[in-house]
Design a protein around this nucleic acid. Structure first.
Lengths: 203, 203
DNA sequence: GTCTATATTTGGATAGAC
DNA sequence: GTCTATCCAAATATAGAC
């Protein structure tokens, strides 16, 4: 007896997920360029030919991966926005970012690598830019939080905040062993999620 | 009449430099993986075959490029060390780093990309790590500066300092248009090159 | 839907003439 | 020292059988 359309759809989804999962692992482990379609197929335990039945090619795998990441980012922002006060919202962002990098530094590393890519590496750059767009949106929301907090120049304050956060994540991924991540987190919260925003230079 | 050995040596150097120059440009423009040996030869205006007469392969080109960068780093540190007071030394580091990223953001971007590479991308990772080693040395010197400045926990302070600097450079390379680099520079100097080091949390 | 086999392309590297 | 021609390996992608 033939499978129902629903059953077929379910199988297709499962296969697609398995492939995407394998691709994500390998891209993170070996990098986008160094991981081959063959690697992905092997890890997903299917043939190379079948992979092309689900994804047009390597780029579409990357695209799907970035889509998921953007969704994750939006989710963090939604959760932050749900908090009552701007101070709590910012705190949520700090913790979301730093907890994430602690748990999966390679993931952060991968995406950082993605948008430090030369723009001429068109395939990669395209999706790095999509991700950057998501960050830009996040940034706007963040500015509003600083405004509500009463910062003198919310935009600048927000940039300072993001720089600090990015710097910490970057340093942590390189020096993970001796890096006092908790200390840094506490300092950052102390610096940006309190009433120091009211005094332009913090003195 | 035959060329003298000296003359030969001069020609060889010039050719080598031309090739290396071409390679650096292309690696920065297109990325290490995306730039081909053929591209490099074309840009240097020589044949592919000749290139192999000067460099064993693509990796050796990258190695030479990283060597130059490490030399640059050391030079900045030497210049900083030559200053009289630790405050001036740290200030020199901030200005060296931020002026450099302002002038050639693509270069910073390239090296950042280099050591955000997955370690399994062995060729690239190898040289990213060499560069990281140079940073580590720089970091030690920096710690001493904070110690002389009287910081309570020089090592932590130095990490905080580096995070901030790296974060600013990272943000600038992505948002160069609207990023207030001068403001950030001033704030960083204010924060780390003055007597605020004496008050652990700056309050 | 899935596999195997193969076509195609690209790019790193070498050989040998000049 | 320099070039052209060529080899070889890897990787993307497709064709066609089951």
């Amino acid at each position: 007896m033939p499978r129902t359309p629903e059953e077929n759809e379910r199988i297709r989804r499962a296969a697609r997920d398995k492939i995407l999962q394998a691709a994500m692992e390998l891209f993170i482990e070996k990098g986008f360029h160094s991981a081959s379609i063959d690697d992905v197929a092997k890890r997903a335990d299917i043939s190379k030919g079948l992979l092309y039945n689900y994804f047009k090619g390597k780029e579409e795998l990357l695209a799907a991966m970035v889509d998921l990441r953007i969704e994750e980012l939006l989710e963090v922002m939604r959760a932050a926005a749900a908090k009552e006060t701007p101070a709590e919202q910012l705190r949520h962002i700090v913790e979301g970012a730093l907890d994430n990098v602690r748990e999966r530094p390679e993931v952060f590393r991968f995406y950082l690598n993605l948008f430090t890519c030369p723009r001429q590496d068109e395939v990669v750059a395209r999706h790095g830019n999509r991700l950057l767009g998501a960050y830009a949106e996040q940034f706007e929301a963040q500015c509003e939080m600083f405004e509500k907090l009463g910062a003198a120049d919310p935009r600048k304050r927000s940039l300072h905040f993001s720089s600090t956060l990015q710097g910490i994540m970057l340093m942590y991924t390189n020096y993970s062993s001796g890096f006092p991540l908790d200390d840094m987190k506490a300092q950052t919260i102390e610096e940006f999620c309190g009433d120091r925003n009211l005094q332009p230079d913090g003195s």
